[in-house]
Amino acid sequence: MKVHVDMDKCICSGMCITIAPSLFDLDKAGRLVVIKSCKLSDTEQKEAQDAAMCCPVEAIELLQHEEPAIA
């Protein structure tokens, strides 16, 4: 699973940072930062799904297949 945030949609509500703190953060200016977007643990995958469902603008997209890592 790969996490992608559509920054055109994101309103930086911060919901995701409480649900999946190891994946998302807000910087000092209140802008969203994706800390980790791939190679997620099982817990992180579940948190990513929860965050996607609770995002007020549905900006979080979960891609089912990770792009192959560059060797």
Binding site: C12, S13, G14, M15, I17, T18, D25, L26, G30
Partner: peptide, 12 residues
Amino acid sequence: MNEAKSLMLSKT
């Protein structure tokens, strides 16, 4: 007001 990160910390 304009403090999203602090609010989310408080919510937790």
